Computed example of a mutant assay.
Amino acid sequence: MTINRAVMALAGFMVLLSVLLTWFVSPYWVWLTVFVGANLFQSAFTGFCPAALIFSKLGLKAA
């Protein structure tokens, strides 16, 4: 798995998790979705993604 695919998988998982937590636990969990979306948006323009740095340190290869 490449870093790009791992980042997309993590973002998708976090969005689904936050939807479930919002539905079953508290509406405030929607802020997790906002955070994930904002992070994806800023990384599209700046190229900086904390998750990509973590995945690279874990040994995943760039595309």
Rank of each mutant, 00 (worst) to 15 (best):
34 V>L: 07
26 S>L: 09
51 A>W: 04
47 G>E: 07
23 W>N: 09
9 A>N: 12
36 V>N: 02
31 W>Y: 11
23 W>T: 12
59 G>R: 00
43 S>N: 10
57 K>Q: 12
29 W>R: 05
62 A>T: 09
12 G>K: 00
12 G>E: 01
14 M>V: 02
20 L>F: 11
57 K>F: 14
2 T>G: 10
21 L>H: 13
57 K>H: 11
17 L>R: 07
26 S>F: 03
14 M>G: 00
58 L>M: 13
9 A>V: 08
51 A>G: 02
15 V>P: 02
17 L>T: 03
60 L>W: 02
50 P>V: 08
53 L>G: 15
16 L>P: 00
47 G>D: 05
39 N>I: 06
23 W>P: 03
62 A>K: 15
2 T>F: 04
22 T>P: 00
6 A>V: 06
1 M>Q: 15
31 W>N: 14
38 A>K: 04
30 V>Y: 01
32 L>S: 07
3 I>R: 13
22 T>C: 06
50 P>K: 12
26 S>W: 05
23 W>A: 15
38 A>D: 06
56 S>M: 09
15 V>S: 04
61 K>W: 00
35 F>W: 08
55 F>A: 10
58 L>S: 09
9 A>Q: 10
46 T>V: 04
20 L>H: 11
60 L>K: 12
60 L>D: 09
12 G>S: 02
60 L>A: 05
54 I>A: 15
26 S>T: 10
52 A>S: 12
42 Q>H: 15
18 S>W: 01
34 V>W: 05
3 I>L: 10
48 F>C: 14
32 L>G: 03
59 G>C: 01
46 T>W: 03
52 A>K: 10
37 G>Q: 04
17 L>C: 03
51 A>Y: 02
8 M>H: 13
8 M>V: 07
1 M>I: 15
52 A>Y: 00
21 L>E: 10
3 I>W: 05
58 L>A: 13
33 T>A: 06
57 K>W: 13
50 P>F: 08
41 F>Y: 14
14 M>T: 03
52 A>C: 03
26 S>P: 06
30 V>H: 07
28 Y>G: 13
11 A>H: 02
52 A>W: 01
21 L>R: 12
53 L>E: 12
43 S>V: 03
52 A>Q: 01
59 G>V: 01
60 L>R: 11
17 L>H: 08
17 L>I: 01
49 C>H: 08
38 A>R: 05
27 P>G: 07
36 V>I: 09
23 W>V: 11
26 S>K: 11
10 L>C: 03
17 L>Y: 05
29 W>F: 14
63 A>F: 13
36 V>Y: 00
14 M>E: 03
1 M>E: 14
24 F>I: 06
7 V>E: 02
53 L>P: 04
39 N>Q: 15
50 P>G: 09
40 L>F: 05
20 L>S: 12
55 F>W: 03
41 F>T: 14
49 C>R: 10
25 V>L: 14
12 G>R: 00
21 L>Q: 14
1 M>P: 13
14 M>D: 11
